[in-house]
Design a protein around this nucleic acid. Structure first.
Lengths: 193, 193
DNA sequence: CCAATTCAGGAACGATTGTTCCGTATTTTT
DNA sequence: AAAAATACGGAACAATCGTTCCTGAATTGG
């Protein structure tokens, strides 16, 4: 009965993630979205509602993608310390090679919007909680296997790790291009584990 | 020959810091500035140029204020570890009691603008460098006095400390109100020193 | 073929953006 | 007192903002 959608909704969301990630919410105009997503104004608004809804869907999709990989890596890991190191190393690589430094979409959004938009705040909070759980479980496993020191509680270490992970993403967003800076931070972090 | 200014320029800048800090650059409108600074549009533009210039002057003034206190505290300190603990404790207190969570103006600005405004990027970079130096010198002093472990280089520790400091400020901006989270991070950080 | 649905494109909306300008009031110096 | 300079409030600017709506073409299933 009806014409089928010509564009893939998820693919369009990925494009939205890109530009929101790069320019932020307030920095991205409706015209930016039209240009970057390759949709017409009408299709865009028909499909995603308004700008705020599109942003939230983008952020939620990003959260899903970002959490999935870390969670899976850590749960399947047989040496948590090594896996954590690999995760940090990957973050450093991304920070350095990203020609347009984007940092972390979640961190950027939480700084820009969390205190002014309650719905965004909810997403940020849910992300923090999930990440804390994922890291806590991982650390516990690492401690039981003897790969991570038991001197500090798993939850303490999890929060500590997450804090440094966020810090590194801010550093990247600020345009830090000196690999040594990142390596030093990672080195100090892992001296605790 | 001429009429004297009725308002204090620095006091106006402090007001500008407040609102830019709270709402960000893109989130603050010209009307917001007029209302919050208590100046007329004309006086505002005559005195500070345009919005971007006012923002830069605000950020520079903030940088001066923020650096001054930390620098002085650490240079006068006789036990660097204790002083660093006090500085972190203070950051935690501010994060918790700040009813409108503002985080750190420098961190917020670097996330929002550093990659889109070269002049802001310069300020951010100069801030990072200065803070790194201040922390490095402090750590060196602490290591020589035996208050801080020599297991890691002073510069490594300085970058590590700064990273966690930024992370905590992001956490605050994101609206974290659980003191235990901050305390855990601080605990883990100081287990390295 | 018909009816239904979605597409793209662009005109148009009112609101708000940052900025400029003008007339008037006020204060200072000569 | 006169003259110069600046602050002030507010009107007005063009531009852009997010959003809505309309048009006609395209594509689908019945």
């Amino acid at each position: 009965m009806a014409r089928t959608k010509e564009f893939n909704e998820d693919h369009a969301l990925d494009k939205a993630i890109e530009i929101f990630w790069h320019k932020g919410y307030n920095g991205t105009s409706a015209q930016d979205l039209v240009t970057h997503l390759g949709l017409s104004r009408s299709s865009l608004y028909d499909t995603f509602g308004d700008k705020q809804q599109l942003f939230m869907k983008s952020l939620q999709r990003y959260q899903l993608q970002a959490q999935e990989s870390v969670k899976e890596l850590l749960e399947k890991s047989e040496n948590v310390e090594e896996t954590l190191k690999a995760i940090f190393k990957q973050a450093v690589i991304e920070s350095l090679e990203d020609r347009i430094t984007k940092g972390c979409f979640m961190v950027n959004s939480s700084v820009e919007l969390a205190m002014h938009d309650e719905e965004i705040a909810k997403i940020v909070k849910s992300n923090s909680q999930t990440m804390e759980e994922v890291f806590t479980n991982a650390v516990k496993k690492g401690q039981e296997a003897g790969h991570i020191s038991k001197q500090l509680d798993a939850k303490v270490l999890a929060r500590f790790i997450f804090n440094n992970y966020c810090g590194i993403r801010v550093l990247a967003r600020a345009g830090e291009r000196n690999k040594q800076v990142y390596d030093d931070i990672v080195k100090a972090v892992f001296s605790v584990l």
